Simulated scan of single mutants.
Amino acid sequence: MALVGLQNETNRKTWIETKLQEIPDGCLILDAGAGERKFKPYCTHLRYVSQDFGQYNGSGDNKGLQTGSWNQDNLDIVSDIISIPRPDASFDAIMCTEVFEHLPDPLLALKEFSRLIKPQGVLLLTAPFCSLTHFAPFHFVSGFNSYWYEKHLPAYGFHIIELEKNGNYFEFLAQEVRRIDGVANKYTNCKANLLERWIEKQLLKRLDRLSRQDTGSNEMLYFGCHVFARKE
């Protein structure tokens, strides 16, 4: 039970690090929507270029989930993600992690990635299947399921090599159970009593047991997709 509902980010980071190591040394990679460039340390064998629109400051409009602080002082490119000032076929790889939900039209970003990636170059994408409001007012889409990638990536010239679903229905519910106290503290004056805390603990135990015995609930709900694709 100690880990149930806590593996969303850990799973994603592990997958991204693994995929980045599969890209040959010296390749030029664009981190699109790089934010604070947290994946740059995984790219020491690559030539790393970061891009972001640079308008989020950590507090946004103070609604939903905000980071509190956000440092983008060292970005290589500050631009709209759908209009990145680089020539066609500039990059061997593009990485875009947890960004698509913050774009008014994510398909325009796919179109731009298709322009920027060299033939046989690779694309690493992650985005939530379902997400709470965060980084507002720059939050436009609640999430993306596997069918979205299967529909749109081929239309923009990408062949999906790997599509991994992170988590399952029970893991997602456990994540939100763990979030109850924080949301309650922000939006109510209600503090959990001993009985309620016991109930939440028992619920997490059950969700842990169900997750361990899961046989495919991620066809309904999960944290998000991890996608590795190649430009044809």
Rank of each mutant, 00 (worst) to 15 (best):
I161P: 02
I160G: 03
D52H: 11
C225W: 04
A127S: 11
G68E: 01
G64K: 10
A136S: 13
F223K: 05
H152T: 03
L221D: 02
Y156G: 04
Q120A: 15
N189M: 05
N145K: 05
I199Q: 05
R212V: 00
Y147C: 09
R178P: 00
H134Q: 10
D92Q: 02
T133S: 07
Y187W: 14
L110Y: 02
A229D: 04
F129M: 11
E101C: 02
W148P: 00
F91E: 13
V122R: 15
F172L: 15
F113K: 04
L194H: 09
N57D: 15
L3E: 06
N74E: 06
P128R: 03
D61E: 06
S59Q: 12
G60A: 05
T44Y: 12
F39K: 04
V183S: 07
P119S: 00
P85F: 11
L194S: 06
N145H: 13
N185G: 06
T18K: 13
F138K: 08
G26K: 12
F170D: 03
R197C: 12
N62R: 15
K63F: 11
R197Q: 10
I161G: 07
G182D: 11
T44F: 12
V177Y: 02
H159Y: 07
I160E: 03
H139Q: 07
I77A: 09
V122F: 06
L108V: 10
H45W: 13
A155N: 15
L203T: 14
D76V: 00
G167C: 08
L203S: 08
I199C: 08
T44W: 06
L6W: 02
L123M: 10
R47K: 13
G35A: 01
K38E: 08
